[in-house]
Each structure stands twice: as structure tokens, then as C-alpha cells.
């Protein structure tokens, strides 16, 4: 089985036109891969380009050169060259992205947000609703909050809604940008468990975890991103 994700010599820089056309090198010549059940943890200090790399994989940032190959069933798609609607299709059914921030959708209740993400990810309505309840339960989101829009929730609660939303569907590639930041120990353990389950079911994961405990629990490979720092531009 081919890896779910392969990066081949990916480079990325920003040209800041508003700052005299300054070039900001982000990463250069990145190659890595993540197979089924693997968890590749991106390491390195902040500013090394870890988050940018996740965004490149997700198609959120473009890259200047190289290929970002994502496996969609029997088809290999190069995110760096794919049409927008192909990337959107990958996001729906193949790759998920979980950050520490919940982009709040006004007027929609927490449970519906999570179940809705499940339906978008290809689950039927019943399964989505069932899984949403299970996830919110294990993530210790009090049931009285399920019907309410999360805009008024605490930071930790919002984050757990976001994790539930990111993990509900069955995707073969998960991109995690510090999903456990600012969670308490109990909930952190729950999240580790959930991610471990995903690994066992064959999901490939690329993640950023600052917390050593989380990293050690989940990582199959650690890649130090500083090695991709711009080589003398």
C-alpha cells in the first residue's frame, strides 16, 4: 500500500509586496511521507515552518516547487497542482485538518456542528448524529451545552468541539496543529486516545504537538523541520 502522503522536494516562500517585495523563505526542499497508521510529528522551534507545512499539505498555502502527493483511493493527487475543486474533494473525503481554533459558525448548536462535519465527510445522517454524541460524551462536553452555539463556550470547550468536528469522519489523512494545546490533563488523555484509535484504523497523521507527553504517546516518526530551513537564499 502506498503512503497516504508523500512530500517531494517542497519549497515555499512568501513575497511581501507591501514590504518592498521582501522574500520570506519558509521551508525548502522538504521530502517526507506518512503511511497508514503512521504518525509523523513535526518538530522544531516556533517559526521553523511547521504550521506552514501543514497548510501546504492541506492546500491552504501554495508551494513554489515540489509535489504534495495525497492518496485518494487508487488515485494519487498532487495538491500543489490540483484544481481547487479537486482539493475540496480531498478535504471532504480524504484529509482532515484540526487546529486549536474553532471558527465559530453563528446560530448552529454544538452537536449539529459536529454531526454536520460528519455528514460532510461522507457519513449518513444517523451515523453522524450517533458519533457526534459519542465524541462529545468522551470529550466531556456537558450534555446541556450540546444544543447551544459554541460562541459563548469556554476556550477549552470550544477546542473540544473543534476536535470532535475534526475527528468524526473517517479520513485517511489527518493534519493536526496542536489540537491539545490548553487542554487539561484528563481531556488531553482522551484526545490522545482518540488519535491513537485513528492510527489503529489506518489513518496517516501529520501533527504538531508541543506537549512532550502527547508527542511521545503518538509519534511514530519525528521530523525536525529546522533541517528544511532555507538554505542561503
Amino acid at each position: 500500500m502506498p503512503p497516504h502522503l508523500t512530500l517531494e522536494r517542497v519549497s515555499k516562500s512568501f513575497t511581501l509586496h507591501l514590504h518592498g517585495g521582501a522574500m520570506l523563505e519558509v521551508v525548502s526542499d522538504v521530502s517526507l511521507s506518512a503511511g497508514p497508521g503512521e504518525c509523523v510529528v513535526l518538530g522544531g522551534p516556533s517559526g521553523a515552518g511547521k504550521s506552514s507545512l501543514l497548510k501546504i499539505i492541506y492546500g491552504n498555502y501554495r508551494c513554489d516547487s515540489g509535489r504534495v502527493l495525497v492518496q485518494d483511493g487508487s488515485e494519487t493527487v498532487d495538491v500543489a497542482a490540483a484544481e481547487p475543486r479537486r482539493i475540496l474533494a480531498l478535504r471532504r473525503s480524504v484529509m482532515g485538518y484540526v487546529s486549536q481554533f474553532l471558527r465559530v459558525i453563528p446560530r448552529v448548536g454544538a452537536l449539529d456542528i459536529v454531526a454536520g462535519a460528519g455528514r460532510q465527510g461522507g457519513l449518513d445522517a444517523e451515523t453522524a448524529a450517533q458519533r457526534a454524541k459519542e465524541l462529545l460524551t468522551v470529550l466531556n462536553v456537558p450534555e446541556r451545552l450540546w444544543g447551544l452555539p459554541p460562541a459563548t463556550f469556554s476556550g477549552g470547550e470550544q477546542q473540544r468541539i473543534n476536535i470532535a468536528r475534526g475527528l468524526i469522519a473517517d479520513r485517511s489523512l489527518l493534519l493536526l496543529d496542536e489540537p491539545t494545546a490548553s487542554l487539561d490533563a484528563r481531556n488531553r488523555a482522551v484526545v490522545i486516545d482518540l488519535i491513537e484509535n485513528k492510527k489503529r484504523s489506518g489513518t496517516a497523521i501529520v501533527g504538531i504537538f508541543h506537549d512532550d507527553e502527547v508527542r511521545e504517546a503518538l509519534a511514530t516518526t519525528v521530523v525536525d523541520v529546522t533541517q528544511f530551513a532555507a538554505k542561503a537564499a
Binding site: 507591501l18 492546500g59 491552504n60 501554495r62 481547487p84
Partner: peptide, 16 residues
């Protein structure tokens, strides 16, 4: 391009 791509990683001076 993709909306989040163009808005988060704008290339052209005008878009920036």
C-alpha cells in the same frame, strides 16, 4: 484559486 488559499497566501501585490 481556492478561497482560503488566495486569502491566506495571496501572491499578487493587489491581493495582498
Amino acid at each position: 484559486g481556492l478561497t482560503d488559499q488566495v486569502l491566506d497566501d495571496p501572491r499578487e501585490l493587489y491581493t495582498q
